[in-house]
Design a protein around this nucleic acid. Structure first.
Lengths: 224, 224
DNA sequence: CTCCTGTATTTTGTATACATTGTATGATTA
DNA sequence: TAATCATACAATGTATACAAAATACAGGAG
């Protein structure tokens, strides 16, 4: 592991939060790999803080499912098996269907416009080829739907579930041949929401998730 | 608040975990009330430990949704509005339906027997009238279904969701007139699982949750 | 050579001291 | 009297010191 970690000290937040965000980013980007140990003293010296905020950040990562700790042995970056991924996606499919179904009832004209913007933005981003940008645009698209569902708890949970597969999804988005499929799926979801056709949107989002499952599971299988 | 908190020091666990469980219990039982401040020094002296494990336990409660902290102001027991409860139950209904549907496919003969035991146990417990016992039997019944679903992540999430309304559900279970309805619902769910009739079980569990919603929302409304 | 054991080292667990920020109180002034 | 500022106090944020457990490793017994 190269010494890439660095804190953004400008944020006016308790160090535990800064450390938490830093470590989370590092895990999601793959700088900290699954199974890698998270040693307090080492992290503390690398980040230039004491052990206290590190420990509290680890507690937070733990409950997000990104770290696993064994008492008196320490923490490590959570590993994810194919089965784990199946489990997560099963839940995500179910909750994403709920979210889109709620959004179908509640979405305002303004939110629909935002969604269309996000959709176009995503399409554009794929032309740039920058994975970071594509991922961001995708998050934007789904977040718009989530916030229209008007259930903050649901939004939090979905973001957390999405986060857990983010490490693998980055690989997925690198594959340019998948882009046109994603664009079409977004289009179908958007159209369904415009027409307030619940059946269509639920089906569309379900397939959207299941397609991801295929690809991400392949990536995991290759890694092992 | 009376000084009821006490640690179970026998458990061979880091203090943060003992403190976490203690505080969680206290919140769920209503000994620590929604909105009540969680002051580190005070809790530390009451529980006879230092601030460090208290702080880590609070971080854990926070991510379970049982506590809310504002930087530099401290933590308090999370409040729950009627809307929050609706949101939680919406999610729970969805995930419970998923769980029962999975269980329908995967449940073994042995698990069905365990479920029947739990069902009978619940019926018996209502005759005892002890709320604690009834709640325990109900948890047992649903946990059996959850574990049959064979998705640990789903089980964790459902337990967490159930936990969040536990404070209010205890009140619910005190109402003896509700017992016969619950028993009948459990019976329907059990029968549906025996016959592997997915449609029936999904419908039954959905109604089971929605009935709870009615009652629990009333309880919250009265409290305000 | 293998296995066990004792010791050194590393790492986590816990307590405590100090720093910083938030809050209440009361004096001062318009 | 009301508003504002200074100050004291209380709570959280952070660092560090010490304790206890886990781990690694070397040396000796079988």
């Amino acid at each position: 592991m190269t010494d890439k970690l660095e804190l953004n000290m400008n944020a006016y937040l308790p160090l535990r939060d800064v450390v938490f965000h830093t470590l989370r980013e590092a895990i999601l980007k793959g700088e900290l790999k699954p199974g890698e140990r998270l040693m307090e003293l080492q992290l503390a010296s690398r980040l230039g803080v004491s052990r206290t905020p590190i420990r509290e950040a680890i507690r937070m990562l733990e409950l997000e499912g990104l770290a696993v700790t064994v008492p008196r042995k320490g923490a490590m970056v959570a590993k994810m098996t194919e089965k784990d991924m199946e489990d997560v996606l099963q839940i995500r499919k179910c909750l994403d269907e709920l979210a889109v179904s709620l959004a179908c009832d509640k979405m305002t004209q303004q939110q629909l416009e935002m969604l269309n913007e996000a959709r176009k933005q995503f399409e554009e981003s794929t032309r740039s080829g920058e994975v970071k940008l594509i991922a961001q645009a995708d998050v934007e698209f789904h977040d718009t739907i989530y916030s229209a569902a008007d259930n903050p708890k649901l939004m939090t949970m979905l973001n957390n579930l999405r986060e857990q597969m983010y490490r693998y999804r980055v690989e997925y988005l690198k594959d340019e041949s998948a882009h046109s499929g994603l664009i079409a799926e977004h289009q179908r979801i958007y159209d369904g929401l415009v027409n307030k056709n619940k059946e269509v949107v639920v089906k569309a989002i379900g397939e959207h998730i299941m397609n991801q499952e295929m690809v991400v599971k392949n990536i995991i299988r290759e890694q092992e």
